[in-house]
Amino acid sequence: MKPSWLLIITSDPRTSARPAEAIRIAAGVGTWKKADVSVYLRGPAVLALSEFADEFIDEDNYTRYFPIIGEFGRPIYVEQGAPRLAEIGESPMRYQEISDVELAALAARHNHVARF
């Protein structure tokens, strides 16, 4: 069974380079298919799903690496009811809202969980 890794991203992509770096790492690790990589966005990090990444730090990472993550065969998980979801417009990414209890179960199923 392949190892699995969940990246929890909570930083604001407009003010922090951490979300962009997390997405780059997730794409880089997952693309080899030797580990199952999942991404969860919470709070202001849900803005990373926006149609336009112009205002984000290291914006190229979003256009270059997010599509790779989209090919992993699972949605981007996001905080259910996150207020910022109303601001993302037509997201190019497939995403799924999950509750905190579902996040706890998701984390428990993964071998490694890291927060960015």
Binding site: T10, R42, V101, A104, A105
Partner: peptide, 16 residues
């Protein structure tokens, strides 16, 4: 707070 919330939820599961 997020870690605390996740830990509390996982502790509700009998097989964890």
């Amino acid at each position: 707070p997020l870690a605390a919330k996740i830990i509390a939820a996982q502790r509700q599961e009998p097989d964890h």
